[in-house]
Amino acid sequence: MHPRLRKALTSIFSDGFLIIYFMFALFPILWMILVSLKSGTELFTTQFVFTPTLENYQAILFGDPRAAAGVVARVDFPRNFLNSLIVSSGAVVISLAVGVPAAYALARYNFKGKETLAFTFLSFRFAPELVVIIPLSLIYRQLGLYDTYFGIIWVYQLVTLPLLIWVLRSYFEDISPDIEQAAMIDGYPWYQIFMRILLPLVRPGLAAAALLAFVFAWNNFIFPLVLGASTVQTVTVSALGYISSAQAFFNRMAAAAVIASVPQMMLALSIQRYLIRGLSFGAVKG
């Protein structure tokens, strides 16, 4: 076969495959958006042509007339959204504060039990959350952490911290210690070396890992379901409220999901230029 023809065919195949995958990946999102615009009567039809309505968005944001009438459970979506925002960002901020120095230490220093410690962090992600949730919930009730912001943020560290540490560790390992030593000779204290030299170098990894950590925390369902209650209810848990014993309001649920995915998408788009580099780099080096 002519090499140019082969090249053309290869690119057609790879483009075709990507388009198919793209549709496969994006169709649920499209479906979710469509459902969120449907009224209750059209909900279970598969027609793409229907009269769109903003009724669902109105209901979840400004109160549902049916909830007021006692037909369905009252879901305070704006408040839950705020809860999700608080616990997810809180979890990421604490993970950053703890994880960046931890990753640095694991990359730079040799100490006894270093690999064991690193593996322990990683192993937080091994066990299914369901395995630890019962003992955790008992402990939380004992300690008074049940249904508190702090409690949820703390338990989210199981999700966010390992990711940050492992991605950033490989970034720090790639930076030659000579650079830090050069800055030391140049007369900078360690925190300035960190801020002016190291941080810009790990920024892609930091951005990517922090975003992923945020997404994982935001999407987490089981921890806030079991360890939170009325005070710290997140959007993932509150979505259950749209299903009553008599009827499931999937259109409301879809509207809630659309709004709930906005922060993640905004974050992902805003750091897109770091994201691809950051993740592929970390993954290959991992």
Binding site: S176, D178, I179, Q181, A182, A183, M184, I185, D186, G187, Y188, R196, I197
Partner: peptide, 16 residues
Amino acid sequence: PSERNAALAFETYALY
């Protein structure tokens, strides 16, 4: 190191 007024050119250059 910063008080010794000794400068080192690193093997790896160690540029920022």
